[in-house]
């Protein structure tokens, strides 16, 4: 059975501090959400994930760039990198790094959902037949993706998987399971080219998105439910999952 082999102590260095498990959902309105999926070379797949998670066959990562028009924390742009994985038998993506454009969003994304969000400049440029997404941190370009030829798809044709954030929580260091509902009003598939990807800046020099699979751009509302489950990062989810107080196991 494939399982992660990364040192939890090493991963914990960049973990966010989730101060309390919030009781309410958070809604992000007027969102444009770009997602690109890329395969990685299998040699690194176990080394990137903690022992509590299973890699996928083949190894893959997803990059998401959000332009949020309205939220409890104001408007902001947000970018994150996730490694595709399985928690138990469920499809997930573990965040390796995240960037955001405002301090308010950075602190709330960390304290509410455990995102390790740092401040960066995030460009979200959408034209009629193309798009470009860039991230720069301290004047250093760490992401540049260009896309061409948007093609309309059905509103349910993009599959998002749940996110896992490694964070210090009231229960200790845990993988925090985010459950997001994406309610799309427009969906497009695009042809993406990855011009720049700084692996170290995205959390691990082993990250290697060498083969672009597909990308999508959705106009949508995103609702993040209150945290219900967390998992011990060094234990498989079958035994290492804990229900957060106030939630119930199904």
């Amino acid at each position: 059975m494939l399982v992660g082999t990364a040192s939890v102590d090493d991963l914990a260095v960049s973990a966010a501090n989730l101060t309390e498990f919030s009781a309410g959902a958070v809604q992000f309105d007027d969102v444009m959400c770009f997602q690109v999926i890329a395969e990685m070379r299998n040699q690194a797949r176990e080394a990137i994930l903690p022992p509590g998670l299973h890699p996928t066959v083949p190894a893959a990562l997803s990059l998401q760039v959000w332009r949020v028009g309205d939220s409890p924390w104001g408007a902001f742009n947000f970018a994150l990198c996730r490694v595709s994985c399985r928690s138990g038998v469920r499809a997930r993506g573990m965040t390796t790094a995240a960037y955001v454009t405002t301090e308010a969003a950075a602190s709330n994304l960390a304290s509410t959902f455990g995102y390790p969000a740092r401040i960066a400049d995030i460009g979200f440029q959408q034209n009629f037949d193309s798009a470009r997404f860039t991230v720069s941190s301290a004047d250093h370009e760490i992401l540049d993706i260009t896309c061409l030829d948007p093609q309309p798809l059905g509103l349910n044709d993009v599959q998002y998987t749940g996110t896992l954030n490694l964070a210090q929580t009231p229960l200790g260091l845990r993988l925090v399971q985010l459950e997001e509902q994406h309610q799309a009003s427009r969906v497009e598939r695009l042809n993406a080219s990855l011009r720049k990807f700084d692996a170290a800046a995205w959390g691990n020099p082993l990250l290697d998105p060498y083969w672009i699979v597909a990308s999508s751009l959705c106009a949508e509302t995103i609702v993040c439910s209150p945290i219900r489950f967390v998992c011990r990062p060094d234990e498989l989810a079958f035994t290492g999952t804990e229900a957060v107080a106030g939630s119930s196991r199904g």
């Binding site: 059975m1 299973h54 893959a60 138990g88 798809l153 059905g154 969906v187 598939r189 999508s216």
Partner: peptide
């Protein structure tokens, strides 16, 4: 069987499609 099955990368997860 189910665990091994879950490790596979499903088409819908990777590639938006109808």
């Amino acid at each position: 069987f189910n665990v091994a099955n879950s490790h596979l990368y499903w088409t819908r997860e990777a590639h938006p499609t109808t």
